[in-house]
Design a protein around this nucleic acid. Structure first.
Lengths: 119, 119
DNA sequence: GGTTTACTATACCAAATGGTATTACAATGT
DNA sequence: ACATTGTAATACCATTTGGTATAGTAAACC
């Protein structure tokens, strides 16, 4: 079970709670970018933009490698998965036909398991 | 496409970025609760707890109805779905076998389309 | 060598956040 | 009538957040 008190979830959800940081994530989903490339589409100063990148690094959503004078960032989306798993727990609360979906989910799960057994 | 600049996502992700609020959501996923019930398991004063409930109401995640002197809260999980849809966009970035999944997704999409054409 | 270029660091600010304590009020129980 | 319960409202506090301006460093270029 995904615990509510996970400090990871705190920082991940907080990192996602700002449009600039979500825009950065979207940019990085297209591949590696340096800080200038990430900052330029944002309507703020460069230092402000790099602060947002630091927040994303704190949430382990972004990793940075230094190449000469450029700082190249890449997305590490694994924490997003954990965030989604927490959210997923409440799917039945927004899904009207949740019984149908639950059975479908179970079906897919068992199918997945039998597939991995065959491997 | 789910836009990064949606103010809804801001407030929803922010609402999720606190363990107390996630605990409240989990409690409410089990059904209606009044404020005292929500506050008692949280390690904080009552006013602090009700502030968190207000934040959740601001994110449209919680609705309140007043019955006598009790304020009964219920979960309205729909905004969680939107948050998950945004996150879902980056599934391929954490999923190793994303090509397999993408083709599966396309398959489901075209199946869905042909179903809606038949309707 | 000197000038861009890419980025960091620091200081500073206003506003929001997360909490407390306290007071007040209305509905309920005895 | 009175005490208790469930909640609101206010004031207050420390800390964090999101931004700016400015100065500084280090690599690349002419």
């Amino acid at each position: 079970m995904v615990l509510d008190c996970s400090p990871k979830l705190d920082v991940v959800f907080h990192a996602l709670a700002h449009p600039a940081r979500r825009a950065i994530i979207r940019q990085l989903s297209g591949g590696e970018r340096n800080l200038s490339e990430l900052a330029s589409p944002l309507r703020m100063t460069f230092p402000a933009a790099t602060k947002h990148v630091r927040v994303l690094e704190g949430a382990k959503l972004v990793r940075r490698r230094i190449a000469g004078r450029q700082h190249l960032c890449r997305l590490h989306a694994a924490p997003l998965k954990e965030a989604m798993l927490w959210t997923e727990q409440f799917r039945r609360n927004w899904e009207a036909r949740f019984k149908v979906l639950d059975s479908l989910l179970d079906e897919m799960k068992s199918e997945e398991q039998s597939r991995s057994r065959r491997r």
